[in-house]
Structures are given as C-alpha cells and as structure tokens.
Design a protein around this nucleic acid. Structure first.
Length: 779
DNA sequence: AAAGACTGTCATCGC
DNA sequence: AAGCGATGACAGTCT
C-alpha cells in the first residue's frame, strides 16, 4: 500500500504540478473520488497527512475564513479569486482540483519540481501553496508568497515534519478517522476545499488592498483571525484529530458540542466543521506557548492517535445524543435553516460532496438543505460580502454565535427542503410558524396542532406536554395494552396459566374463570394460591418437627406489600407462597437461621426460649394439633389431595375429636388460602378498574382534543370557502357588466364540482330540501 | 391510643 | 352428598 501510495502520489503529483504550472487544470480528484475509491484513500489520506495543516486548511475553506492566518501571501488571495471564477465556471466540483494543486505545490520543494516554495517543504500552509500554483499570477507575487511562507514557518517554529511522506499507519488511520468523521456527518472532503474558502476571502480582496491583507494575515491580525477561527470552531466545529494541544482541544470541541446540544441544533455537521488546524496551532501557541513549541503542537497531528480516537468517541456519543434529540431538534433545525446565510459554504459542501454518505440520523434535512442552498452558496454575493474576520460562514449555523442570522434566506428550494423535514418530524409544531407562505398549508396544520394542544391544556387543565404525551399514547394505541401488560392481572394470568396445569383441583379453574370480570386475575390468584401453599415438597422436610409451614415475618412483610402492590409480588414469585401468615409457625430450621438470636445467647435456657418462640409462632390450629397429638403436619393436612389425605387418615387410628380437628384444620387452611386469593383477586380487579378509568379519561381527553381540532379546521375551511365565495361572486358580472346582488343571487355548488349562479330564492328552496332529507332519513 | 391495613376465620353459596 | 373454591363479614393483630 505504501509503495503504491508513494508511487501514485509522487507520480501524479509531479505530473499534475507540471500541468498546473502551465495552466492546465488537472482534476485529479475526479479520478480519486469516483473511480478509484481505494486509490483515493491511498492518496488522499496520506496526502492529507502530508500536510496536516493543509488538510485542515482545506477544512478552513469551509468556515469561510479562507486563507490560513499564516498565509501572508496576498497574491494567493487574488489568485484564489481567479480560481474561484474558474471554479465557478467549472461548477463546484472543480474544487478538488484546487486541493490537489495545493499539495502539489507543497510537494514541489521536496520534489524540487517548482522550487517556488521554501525548503520548508510540506507544510502546514497548504492554502498559500495552493494559491501559488493554481493561479497564473503565481509568479508575480511569488516573492511575497515565499516571504510570507517563510515567515509563517518561522513563526511556527517548525513545520510539519519533512518525513510526512512516510506516514505511519497511525497517521493514516488518524486521517482516515477524520475523513470518516466528515463523511459521517455528511460533509464531503470537498467541503474543505481551499477554493471554497477563497470565495469568501475574495470579499476581503474586494474590500481591502494587498497591504491591508498583509496586515490581516500576518501579525496580530493573523492571530486575531486565528482566534476567530478557533471561536468559529466553537460554534460548531470539532477538530478532534487536528488537536495539537490534546486535552485542550478536546475540551474545546466538547464544549462546542455541548453548546450545540444546548442550542438543540441538529446540524451535527456544524460541530464537525473543521477548524483551521493551522489557526489552532497558531492560536494556541500565540497565547500560551512560544513559537518554538509549535512543533510539539503539530507533531501530535502526525503521530498522536489517542486524542483523535477519544474525540471521535466523544463525538459519537454526542451524535448519538443528538440523534435522540433529532426529533425535538427539527424545529430548531428549521429555524437555523432560515437563519443561516444563503451562501453558507457548509451546507453547500455537504450537498456537493459526491458519494458522501449522509448521516441520516443526525439530519437528513441538513444534507438536503445543503443541496438546496448550494446554489447560492457559491454565487450569492452575500457569501462574499461576509466579513472574513467576524463573519465566518460557520458561525451563522450556530444561533448563539451567529452574526448573520438575519440574512435573508430567499431560497424557494428551502421550501422543498423543509417540507420533508416538516412532514417527517413529529415534533415540528413550533416550526410551523416559521414556515414561509408556500408552506402555509402545513403551517396551518402545525399551528392547529399546537393550538389544539393549547386549547386542550386550557380546557382540561393539561399542560401541552402532558397533552402531547397523551397523544402519543393514543397514537400508539398501546395505552390499554401497556396497562394490561403492566397490570398484575396479566402477569398473574401468565402465572396462572403455568400453574393451572399443576392444580390438583379440577373445579377451581372453571369456577374461577367465571367468577369475576377479570377472569385472568381470578384464575391466576387461585393458581397462585395453589402453588404457594401446595409446595409440599419444599416444606415437608421442614415440617417434620413442627408441622406447619413456616413463614418468616420478613416475608410476611413482603407479602403485605404485595397486596398493596401486586407488581412487587410478581417480582418475588418465590415469596408468593410465603404469605402473610403470622399465625403459622416457621420451620425450625428457618427459625434457627433467621429469627432466633445468636447461638451464644441461646446457651442459657435456649431451649425454653426457643420453645416459647416456636409456640408463639405456631398458629392456633397448630397448637390444637399439637395438643391433640395429631401425628402429621398441618401442611399435609391442608395441602394433600383428598385421596392422599384420606389415605393418610386411614393409616392412623384417630379419635373422633382428632378427626374433627384435622378436618377443621384442613378446612380453615384451605379457606385461608382461598381468602388470600380472593383478596388478591379483588385488589387486582380494583386496580384494573382504576386503569380502565384512567384509559377512559385519556380517551375522553383525546376525543375532546380531536373535536377541538376538527371544529377548528372546519371553521377555517368555512372561512376559506366563504372568502372564495365572496371573491368569485364579486367578480361575476351580468350582461351589462354590473355585479350581481348578493341578495338576489347566490352561488351554488353542484355535486360535480361546478358552481352555478342561481337566484337566491331557488337556492333557499334547495337548501330547505337538503335540510329535510336528513330528517327524513332519521325517521 | 386510635385508625387503618393485614390476616385469619366463619358462614354461606355455588359448582 | 361431599369436597372445594369464592366471598362477605367479623375479629384479631400489626403498623
């Protein structure tokens, strides 16, 4: 790969340089972009890495500042202007040509092809180099360019390492990441093309002399510009990989992202728009570090991979957040669309980027918007009129920083662009009022929605948010189902279905199913009870000593809670059988572990205390059973099937009193479970009824809201019809050219859509007939 | 100490 | 008819 890359780049570059120097435009990018994507990556990636700054300078073309602050060469500016016209003639996609030329120029020193550039070589100053080559005037100002360039290099203290040709894999990966970031955000690499920046810079050219521009681009002016660029980045740009400063830049980009999020700006691309790396590198050292340290700042670009990855990660997170907010953001997006300057190169470039995947999640609107606005973005004088220093085209995208938010947005394309957004967005209500006239229809609907919600809020005490939430619930038609799904009845029904098979009682299912309105609940409860108290296998072992099923008080508490909130019970199905039976004793083993004091404390008379405790824990029936010396446990008495129970009784010779007690115990035990189930069922029924009431109330609210909406729309339609009627009627003239009297004539709408002018009397008669017809039908 | 919740029990009904 | 579940009512217990 590297060898191929080197071969291609060097050969193509040299060839292109030659061609460009003789004025032949070589659009290498077309080959790179469309035909040979891998090739393009091979070349573009490394080439970008070659000139790290250049890559960002290309990005700078986006933000409207055009030339790198360090680019003192004003001739480049003029050249750029010529190039701009050339580019315009060749359509926007010619931009990449400029880009290619740029690094060609920079390669010159190394390749010793042109020698126009200082030996500093590959440089960060792609922009200047670019201009050098592209314009026929290059030679005229070449000296200036060289000076400026050298100065820049000196200021920077170092410059991109000459070894840029031998990029490491990390470098390539880094560039690739950056590239992919741009792509993900819908911005093509063309976005960063230098020529775009130059377009905006042409404005300066028009306004300023070369000397002024010298000042502008060098010294404090350059720094100021660099700072502006930095700020520009804040408006919506993150330059993750470019960040020479590492954490500083990271923080900065994050801050930008946060601002974006706060502004609920869906334009993720904004944040992605590249800050001028050179500007960054310049601005940072200018403020905090001596020029000599710049090299350190730049080096990370070539070698550092962590921060870019981190930033990418952060960006992905942010973008995911923004995706989540996309719906809500649509509104603000539309606002931004309108506020954005027509010539925004950003949007233009988005659409321009060929084969550039659009990040649909972030905003399709943006991409489409860009496509629409691109037309003027390139040619609109507004773009060029933007001040270079303060009027970054990037800024307008961010409401907070925008200095040209009020720029007129006269694109009719926008309507078409905006429509989809309007239609697709579900939360566009607030965007409606912003719509221009062509969107009046939708606007009306949006306004109606909003108004209706407001009305609902007023009429029914709902706030719009609640109303919208309700609406969502209704729209999903999931209100009831959700309730049912969450309701304990449904949950218990599933339990019941599973447990019903294990039920020993064949009659229970039939009786329970018909017992109450919530059959599922009833069946479930009965089954739960059966399950809970029929766990013979579990409890028999424990019963051997004392008999009855043990229930821990703690569990009893749980179960009490379960009554109050069956959902909790469902969370603890294994506790289900541990009912709130404080009358039943715990099994001895359970007592030892759970309830009894520490073993050491039991040494003194522990047996007595334990016995007392067990006695207290025993139920009355257990006490009776113990008193009557019943030879088996109460649990068996209660839960054994009749046949087994009788078989058990037959095994022992029991007195009549004992048999009676055993039967009472069994009856009471079963009744207890039945009572528990009954109460559960009752509670579920109440809860279901409560939910049903809530659902009905929501339905009522929704219907009322819809009614309001319908009435409102009906009223508007009537008004429209009335106005049309008056307009049509007012234009009618009789043979003499006189208008018809409204008192004598009227317009009648025929069934076939035609409109007839008939005498008022006839119209009244027909109206009466139509009124009677419905009455007759009713009869 | 009182009120309410929880639970067990009884009586009754229906299957 | 016996057994069983469901349920209202009551009372005891707990919080």
């Amino acid at each position: 790969m590297l060898s191929l890359k080197k071969y291609l780049t060097e050969g193509l570059l040299q060839f292109t340089i030659l061609l460009s120097l003789i004025g032949v435009r070589v659009d290498v990018d077309t080959y790179l972009t469309s035909q040979l994507p891998p090739l393009r990556e091979i070349i573009l990636g490394p080439s970008s890495a070659y000139t790290q700054t250049q890559f960002h300078n290309l990005r700078n073309t986006l933000d409207g500042y055009g030339i790198h602050p360090k680019s003192i060469d004003l001739d480049n500016y003029f050249t750029a202007r010529r190039l701009l016209s050339q580019v315009r003639a060749l359509d926007r996609f010619q931009v990449p040509t400029t880009e290619v030329n740029a690094w060609l120029v920079h390669r010159d020193p190394e390749g010793s092809v042109s020698g126009s550039q200082p030996s500093s070589g590959l440089t960060l100053e792609s922009s200047s180099g670019l201009q050098d080559v592209t314009g026929p005037d290059n030679g005229v100002r070449e000296s200036e360019t060289e000076q400026g360039f050298s100065e820049d290099l000196e200021d920077l203290g170092a410059v991109a390492p000459p070894v840029s040709g031998d990029l490491t894999k990390e470098d390539i990966d880094l560039i690739d990441i950056l590239w992919r970031q741009d792509i993900d955000l819908g911005a093509g690499r063309e976005i960063f093309d230098y020529s775009h920046r130059q377009k905006e810079q042409d404005v300066d050219k028009d306004l300023c002399d070369g000397a002024e521009q010298d000042d502008t681009w060098s010294g404090e002016g350059a720094e100021a510009l660099a700072r502006n660029l930095l700020v520009d980045g804040e408006t919506g740009e993150s330059f993750p990989a470019q960040v020479p400063g590492g954490e500083d830049q990271t923080a900065l980009s994050l801050e930008e992202c946060l601002r974006l999020l706060e502004a609920t700006c869906p334009f993720g691309e904004n944040a992605e728009f590249p800050a001028d790396i050179s500007s960054i590198t310049e601005a940072v050292p200018s403020e905090s570090e001596p020029p000599g340290l710049q090299n350190h700042l730049l080096s990370p670009l070539l070698t550092g991979t962590e921060s870019p990855f981190d930033l990418e990660q952060q960006w992905q997170d942010l973008m995911s957040i923004m995706e989540m907010q996309a719906m809500e953001v649509n509104t603000s997006a539309s606002e931004i669309l309108y506020s954005a300057p027509p010539g925004d190169p950003l949007s233009t470039n988005y659409s321009l980027a060929p084969n550039t995947p659009i990040n649909q999640n972030v905003s399709l609107h943006q991409a489409s918007l860009g496509g629409c606005s691109q037309d003027f973005s390139l040619f609109s004088p507004e773009v060029e009129s933007l001040p270079v220093a303060g009027g970054s085209t990037l800024l307008p995208l961010v409401p907070s920083n925008s200095t040209s938010l009020n720029s007129t947005f006269g694109s009719t394309n926008l309507a078409g662009l905006f429509f989809p957004a309007q239609l697709n967005g579900s939360a566009n209500d607030t965007a409606g009022p912003e719509l221009p006239d062509p969107l009046g229809g939708l606007l009306d609907e949006a306004m109606l929605d909003e108004i209706s919600l407001m009305d609902l809020a007023i009429e029914e005490g709902f706030n719009p948010v609640q109303a919208s939430q309700l609406e969502e619930e209704f729209d999903s038609d999931s209100g009831l189902s959700l309730d049912s799904s969450h309701s304990p009845s449904s949950l218990s029904s599933s339990e019941g279905s599973s447990s019903s098979s294990s039920s020993s009682s064949s009659s229970s299912s039939s009786s329970s199913s018909s017992s109450s309105a919530s059959s599922s609940a009833s069946s479930s409860f009965s089954e739960e009870g059966a399950v809970g108290y029929s766990s013979d296998s579990e409890t028999l072992d424990l019963e051997e000593a004392e008999g009855a099923v043990g229930y821990q008080p703690e569990y009893s508490k749980f179960c009490r809670m379960s009554y109050q909130d069956p959902a909790q019970l469902s969370c603890l199905p294994y506790l289900e059988h541990v009912g709130h039976n404080h009358t039943y004793n715990m099994a001895p083993s359970a007592l030892d572990s759970a309830e009894l004091p520490a073993p050491g404390a039991l040494k003194k008379g522990s047996k007595e205390k334990q016995a007392d405790f067990l006695d207290k824990q025993m139920s009355r029936d257990e006490h009776r059973a113990r008193a009557m010396k019943i030879p088996f446990t109460n649990d068996k008495i209660i839960n054994l099937p009749v046949e087994e129970f009788n078989e058990l009784l037959s095994k022992y010779q029991l007195s009549e009193a004992q048999l009676s007690l055993i039967r009472d115990i069994r009856r009471r035990g079963k009744n207890k479970m039945a009572a528990q189930n009954c109460r559960k069922r009752k509670l579920d029924t109440i809860l279901n009824l409560e939910r049903d009431v809530e659902d009905l109330q929501r339905d009522k609210a929704r219907l009322l809201r819809e009614k309001v909406e319908f009435l409102r729309s009906l009223r508007q339609m009537k008004q429209k019809v009335q106005s049309l009627y008056q307009e049509v009627f007012g234009r009618l003239r009789d043979e003499n050219g006189r208008p018809y009297s409204p008192s004598q004539y009227a317009l009648q709408y025929a069934g076939d859509g035609s409109v007839l002018l008939i005498p008022r009397t006839l119209a009244d008669q027909q109206a009466r007939r139509q009124e009677r017809k419905p009455k007759d039908r009713r009869k």
